[in-house]
Design a protein around this nucleic acid. Structure first.
Lengths: 333, 333
DNA sequence: AAGGTCTTTGGGAGCGCTCCCACAAAGAGT
DNA sequence: ACTCTTTGTGGGAGCGCTCCCAAAGACCTT
């Protein structure tokens, strides 16, 4: 039952440890004959290198962590999560790295997690949907742990590398579409303003509305369906004449639609609605929700690729990647 | 920048390596004085044990893998996934184990994954929603890797340990509720019959229908919304007089509802609908979907706990855990 | 006071690997 | 023929930890 070691392979192949190691790590300076002998021995013995032993000497664990911290614990429920993790997974398997899922709910678990991540247990860290000025990325980078964020962090010119959607352009395009429909009382249900996504999607709305001289009607939510409902109720109370809504997330748009319907407004006749995410739920909504598509799987892939490049110490021309978004027209607007 | 080693801590505390190791691992035979000195040194140096070094000698990695294989890659989209992983995460952090997410899309990645998992890189494996007679759990156990399944595997009396919902009882209860409503043409949209869940939920339906002498009207789906739509269409064509539907998953129930509405049937007046999952979407459906609740987070926790127990070599009286399900009555039935 | 037991301690050995140095073998140049 | 490379190879050292053994103390007994 005991797994064979490098030494066993060497003995079997009639070579030294060094040669076996070279074959395994693809060193060029190995004779064809030796390589074949080693490969056969590996095959016969079913040899699998011991990661721990390798990690001990190389000081690399070939492992990266995807951190899901307390406030974003519900990411699992969110439509974008599946795509992102899929992208991360596919990019990572290609490079042979392992993905560990690090979760932290309480504050003390958070501290423990930071301790763990900085304690040479992972080669790099992937951080999803950061809120506010979370100190984690700064601490990690300070300890020499490469970190890549998913979504622009708030604050001016942070030094972190990240992958993000072009949220601003997407929002702008959505609102311009509403404008093109002849709507004149366009409201926005914005996301949390302590997140880059939240800020950027609202900026996009403003970009489109400002030049027209039309009023800015804004309510805030936290991307959840419930918050979309209350924001819509608020909007409806303050501006009964609203004729279009741009919601910064699909769940919020869905919540808004529910409230609008309950208030007797026809969609899109009375009020046009556009969401953001291009989630599955948007497609199945009634009426199907016009929304802004964002390439989630690509984002995951890019995050992983960026991280791998940084782990390998490559000089990055571009530590930031921005992915295109575009409007998907359906029936709600 | 170099992280301190055990030896550094020992030197600082004025004790030997052995004593530091004992303190870290909570050995009882350490004097109070030594323990304090060591703890302070650890604090001052910010010492974090090197996992690789420890793993090398203990032959334990303190890591378990959650395998998400090709066919179930969409689990990320499924409502039950979030709860399960949450439960796994919370149970695991308590025990200090790390969770690695192992994904395999293609067949060859699958082979590589098996190689990896059996190659002493993880202490145990968690397998979600197995299809058919997947050879993976058998291979893993044969190689001495403890494995716990989420959901009963098909086939009579497999030797694996697993955690499952009482799917049969839940389904039976749902159908009995339909019967209690006076419905007499109750159809089932069953899940894949190569999965325990699929089989059991259909059995529950039969348990309730059989004694009544009413006809069994069954169509099959794969738990997805789309499959629910086509199954419902099929059912409607074959049995236009159907007055109730029990779907083996919420997405299928939602798909069925869409088709029913399109066919002009009122829910629940013309056709009552019950789903299974108690997902968030069920709550927000129109009308709110009556469904069978299953404790997903508890399932995740139990899976993790079972695995940990097996890893620690505990003698298990009960290598199988079945969790209760119950009907949640809303407006669709 | 001497011998016993139990607790606590330090440190050698060794886990399986990579790194690197020394050296052998094979060409290449004079 | 001889040196000087170049290429390929074996194996010592050591990564940071746990295990375990021998020895030192502490505390009883008689």
């Amino acid at each position: 039952m005991n797994r064979p070691t490098l030494e066993a392979v060497a003995a079997r192949a009639g070579v030294g440890r060094g040669t076996v190691s070279r074959v395994i790590n693809g060193s060029p300076n190995v004779s064809e004959k030796a390589r074949e002998a080693v490969q056969q021995a590996i095959q016969e013995l079913g040899y699998v290198p011991n990661r721990a032993a390798r990690a001990l000497v190389t000081r690399r664990t070939d492992t990266v962590a995807l951190v899901v911290s307390e406030s974003e614990f519900r990411v699992f429920d969110e439509p974008y999560f599946a795509g992102t993790i899929r992208g991360i997974g596919s990019a990572l398997t290609e490079t042979g790295l392992q993905l560990i899922l690090a979760m932290a709910r309480s504050r003390q678990e958070h501290a423990r997690l930071e301790h763990y991540l900085t304690g040479q247990h992972v080669d790099g860290v992937l951080l999803l949907s950061l809120h506010g000025d979370d100190p984690l990325p700064g601490r990690l980078e300070a300890m020499g742990v490469p970190t890549v964020l998913g979504g622009r962090p708030v604050g001016p010119a942070t030094p972190y590398s990240y992958v993000d959607m072009d949220n601003r352009a997407g929002a702008r395009q959505a609102v311009k579409h509403l404008l093109g429909l002849g709507r004149g009382r366009i409201a926005a249900i914005a996301g949390p303003q302590d997140m880059g996504v939240g800020v950027d999607r609202l900026s996009g709305y403003r970009d489109a509305v400002l030049p027209t001289g039309l009023p800015e009607l804004v309510a805030y939510g936290d991307f959840s369906e419930e918050s979309g409902e209350s924001a819509m109720a608020e909007l409806l109370a303050a501006h009964p004449d609203v004729d279009a809504v741009f919601a910064a997330s699909d769940p919020m748009a869905l919540g808004a639609m529910r409230v609008l319907k309950a208030a007797g407004r026809a969609i899109p006749e009375d009020v046009a609605v556009i969401g953001f995410d291009d989630s599955k739920a948007a497609l199945h909504a009634d009426p199907p929700l016009t929304t802004v598509h964002q390439p989630m799987e690509a984002m995951g892939r890019q995050m992983a690729l960026l991280l791998v490049a940084r782990i390998n110490g490559e000089e990055l021309r571009q530590p930031v990647v921005i992915l295109d978004t575009h409007l998907v027209r359906r029936e709600s607007a």
